[in-house]
């Protein structure tokens, strides 16, 4: 995939992504926005919180607000008993955890294989997707962490 593009003047400009799977779909998060990866344990639910908010938990003395990405992206709740994973994110001084199914490898991808969001992408997804990477075997949706976390409560609630 590192075939030089027509505009070869640009230096090969690669971004590293942490890949995760949510209901089978591959997503990539820019590695710089990922703080850590952890197993969410002992989550305290928050009454009256938006539906996508799973709850709050204590991660090494920090209180982390976790967001269930399946719910946010309108997937059904996970049915298998697999221990979910969470990607820890620091956003504006607050700690968040995005709960996903599994964490994969870190990929360094050239921006040349990146495409804008398809026009017909589910609007809910389009709100949080920052483009698509064409991998050989499948497509990877780039998750824009800032946009996920700045979603207004309304969008979180559905």
């Amino acid at each position: 995939m590192t075939k030089p593009t027509e505009a070869a003047g640009k230096p090969a400009d690669t971004i590293q992504y942490v890949t995760v799977r949510i209901a089978g779909q591959l997503f990539g998060l820019p590695i710089l926005s990922v703080h850590d990866v952890f197993m969410p344990e002992r989550t305290t639910r928050v009454p009256r919180a938006p539906r996508a908010v799973e709850g709050v938990l204590n991660l090494r003395g920090r209180i982390v607000t976790t967001i269930n990405m399946r719910r946010l992206l309108d997937f059904p709740d996970a049915t298998d008993t697999l221990q979910p994973m969470a990607v820890g994110i620091d956003y504006k001084g607050e700690s968040y955890g995005l709960i996903i199914d599994t964490v994969g490898e870190v990929l360094a991808l050239d921006s040349s294989t990146r495409e804008p969001n398809p026009m017909n992408l589910d609007p809910r997804w389009a709100q949080v997707a920052d483009g698509i990477h064409r991998l050989e075997s499948e497509l990877m949706v780039i998750l824009d962490v800032e946009r996920v976390l700045s979603l207004r409560q309304g969008a979180m609630a559905a």
């Binding site: 002992r42 305290t44 919180a49 204590n58 209180i63 979180m156």
Partner: peptide
């Protein structure tokens, strides 16, 4: 303080970690 995502909840003024390590509203 609660995270921005939860700050609109008027029923809670914040959260904390108890001695047993769990988070409580």
């Amino acid at each position: 303080p609660m995270s921005t995502l939860l700050r609109h909840l008027s029923m809670f003024s914040g959260n904390t970690i108890l001695g047993d390590g769990s988070v409580i509203m």
